[in-house]
Amino acid sequence: MARPRGYVREEVLDKAMELFWRLGYEGAHLAALVEQTGLNRFSLYKEFGGKAGLFEATLERFLGYLIAEYRDVMTRQPMGLENIEVNLKGLEYGSQYYGCFMLNTLTQKDTVPAGAYQKAVEAAGEIEALYQANLVSAAARGQIGGKANVAGLGKMLQTLDQGLHIQGLAGTSDAQKDRVIAAMMAMLRNEQV
């Protein structure tokens, strides 16, 4: 008969996530992960298959939260420019900001496990698709031109989203972020920028 776990998997993932998020995949050494999570090496390997498996599981947990947040905002009815603006304004900044865990994973392509990188790519694609769906609705509602390049604009909004996360790491203020978002929204509405 197997021994019951002496830990809660989700709590271990949350503790490991903080370390991976702050230090990156390479910076979060196994000894630090053991100390942070409270698992011994044997349990860590048994449960996750090692550091790479733990990273993938933590990223998957984070992406579940992230995509749920995007869907919560970006699927509000009626879909359109309002959802896009609310979403962009809701991006997190602050002194304890370590960037977006998904975006950090994408920028560490050569060092993170391939499976984790692929999950981050898929999540970024889902976010882009949410932007595109809102643009389709915006066109149908007359908020933007009916002949707008929705695919191109969706990619541009995804790029802006990711760029704002990087600007948050660089110390850009909320006021600066708001000016960038206002300019983007004016451009989408075909107003003078």
Rank of each mutant, 00 (worst) to 15 (best):
T37W: 15
G38Y: 04
L39Y: 08
N40S: 13
R41P: 01
R41M: 03
F42H: 10
S43L: 15
S43Y: 11
G49R: 04
G49V: 05
G49T: 01
G50I: 05
G50W: 06
K51Q: 04
A52Y: 04
G53S: 08
L54Y: 12
F55W: 11
F55V: 12
E56F: 00
A57M: 09
A57T: 07
A57Q: 09
L59C: 06
R61E: 02
R61T: 06
R61S: 14
R61G: 05
F62I: 12
L63P: 03
G64T: 03
I67R: 09
E69D: 15
Y70I: 12
R71C: 11
R71G: 09
V73P: 06
R76Y: 04
R76F: 05
P78Y: 04
M79L: 15
G80I: 01
E82A: 12
N83M: 01
I84H: 01
E85G: 08
L88P: 03
L88C: 01
L91D: 00
L91S: 04
E92P: 07
E92V: 08
E92K: 14
Y93S: 00
G94M: 00
Q96V: 07
Q96Y: 11
Y97R: 01
Y97I: 02
C100S: 13
C100P: 06
F101C: 03
M102P: 00
M102A: 09
N104D: 05
T105C: 05
T105R: 06
L106H: 11
L106C: 09
T107Y: 03
K109D: 09
D110L: 12
T111E: 08
T111V: 15
P113H: 00
P113L: 02
P113W: 01
A114F: 08
A114L: 07
G115T: 00
G115W: 02
A116G: 05
A116H: 00
K119L: 13
A120F: 08
G125P: 03
G125W: 14
E126T: 12
E128H: 11
A129C: 02
A129D: 06
L130R: 03
Y131V: 08
N134W: 02
L135G: 03
L135H: 02
S137I: 11
A138N: 07
A140E: 12
R141Y: 10
Q143N: 10
G146P: 03
K147Q: 13
K147S: 09
K147I: 03
